[in-house]
Deep mutational scan, measured.
Amino acid sequence: SISSRVKSKRIQLGLNQAELAQKVGTTQQSIEQLENGKTKRPRFLPELASALGVSVDWLLN
């Protein structure tokens, strides 16, 4: 799922939720909701993929 991929990649990069949120241009709460499965397809998906160094396709599939 996107939530597990985001969380595992974030941890692999040594980032906390607030640091990832800053790179993406969103809030820590938005990252938390995404990782908890409350958000399925965030509006900041391209920025998120870029910050994590992955493709949008990788996040979604």
Rank of each mutant, 00 (worst) to 15 (best):
S1Q: 10
S1M: 10
S1W: 11
S1E: 10
S1N: 12
S1F: 11
S1D: 13
S1C: 12
I2P: 04
I2T: 06
I2K: 03
I2E: 03
S3I: 05
S3F: 05
S3H: 10
S4D: 14
S4T: 12
S4G: 10
S4C: 13
S4W: 12
R5C: 05
R5S: 04
R5H: 03
R5N: 06
R5A: 08
R5L: 08
V6P: 02
V6D: 00
V6I: 10
V6W: 00
V6K: 01
K7T: 09
K7R: 14
K7F: 06
K7N: 05
K7A: 10
K9I: 11
K9N: 02
R10C: 03
R10W: 01
R10G: 00
R10E: 00
R10S: 03
R10Y: 01
R10T: 09
I11N: 08
I11Q: 10
I11C: 09
Q12V: 07
Q12P: 01
Q12A: 13
Q12K: 09
Q12N: 07
L13I: 07
L13Q: 07
L13W: 05
L13F: 05
L13E: 04
L13M: 11
G14M: 06
G14H: 07
G14C: 07
G14P: 00
G14K: 07
L15C: 05
L15W: 14
L15T: 02
L15K: 03
L15M: 14
L15P: 00
L15G: 01
L15R: 03
N16A: 09
N16E: 09
N16W: 03
N16I: 05
N16P: 05
N16T: 15
N16M: 07
Q17N: 04
Q17M: 10
Q17G: 06
Q17P: 09
Q17E: 09
Q17T: 15
A18R: 15
A18L: 13
A18K: 11
E19T: 07
E19V: 06
E19L: 05
L20T: 02
L20I: 05
L20R: 01
L20W: 01
L20M: 04
L20Y: 01
A21T: 01
A21P: 02
A21C: 03
A21G: 05
A21K: 02
Q22D: 11
Q22M: 12
Q22F: 12
K23M: 15
K23F: 10
K23V: 10
K23G: 04
K23T: 08
K23Q: 10
K23P: 03
K23S: 08
V24H: 02
V24I: 11
V24K: 00
V24P: 01
G25F: 05
G25C: 09
G25V: 03
T26F: 04
T26Y: 04
T26E: 07
T26V: 15
T26M: 08
T26W: 06
T26Q: 09
T26H: 04
T26R: 06
T27S: 12
T27K: 07
T27Y: 04
T27H: 07
T27N: 09
Q28N: 07
Q28E: 12
Q28R: 13
Q28Y: 09
Q28P: 12
Q28F: 09
Q29E: 14
Q29N: 11
Q29K: 14
Q29G: 10
Q29D: 13
Q29W: 15
S30F: 14
S30T: 10
S30K: 13
S30E: 15
S30R: 12
I31Y: 02
I31P: 02
I31S: 01
I31F: 02
E32Y: 09
E32P: 01
E32C: 09
Q33L: 14
Q33F: 12
Q33V: 07
Q33N: 15
Q33R: 14
L34G: 01
L34T: 04
L34Y: 04
L34P: 02
L34I: 12
L34D: 01
E35Q: 02
E35H: 01
E35Y: 02
E35K: 02
E35L: 03
N36G: 10
N36W: 08
N36R: 11
N36P: 02
G37S: 06
G37E: 06
K38Q: 14
K38T: 15
K38R: 12
K38H: 14
K38N: 13
T39G: 10
T39P: 09
T39N: 13
T39W: 11
T39R: 09
K40C: 13
K40Q: 13
K40N: 12
R41T: 13
R41C: 15
P42T: 09
P42N: 06
R43F: 14
R43V: 12
R43D: 13
R43P: 14
R43T: 14
R43N: 13
F44S: 03
F44M: 07
F44T: 02
F44Q: 04
L45D: 01
L45T: 04
L45R: 02
P46H: 14
P46M: 13
P46W: 13
E47W: 06
E47K: 11
E47M: 10
E47F: 07
E47Y: 07
L48K: 00
L48V: 06
L48H: 00
L48S: 00
L48C: 02
A49L: 04
A49G: 04
A49W: 01
A49S: 06
S50Y: 13
S50E: 14
S50K: 14
S50R: 12
S50A: 14
S50N: 13
A51V: 13
A51T: 07
A51W: 05
A51Y: 06
A51F: 08
A51P: 00
A51C: 06
L52E: 00
L52Y: 00
L52C: 02
L52W: 00
L52D: 00
L52H: 00
G53C: 07
G53M: 07
G53F: 06
G53N: 09
G53Y: 05
V54K: 01
V54Q: 03
V54M: 06
V54W: 03
V54R: 02
S55R: 07
S55N: 08
V56E: 10
V56I: 14
V56A: 08
V56W: 07
V56M: 12
V56D: 04
D57Y: 13
D57K: 10
D57V: 09
W58Q: 03
W58H: 03
W58A: 03
W58S: 03
W58V: 03
W58L: 02
W58E: 05
W58P: 00
L59E: 01
L59S: 00
L59K: 00
L60D: 06
L60W: 09
L60T: 10
L60H: 05
L60G: 05
N61T: 08
N61E: 10
N61K: 09
N61I: 09
N61R: 10
N61H: 13
N61G: 15
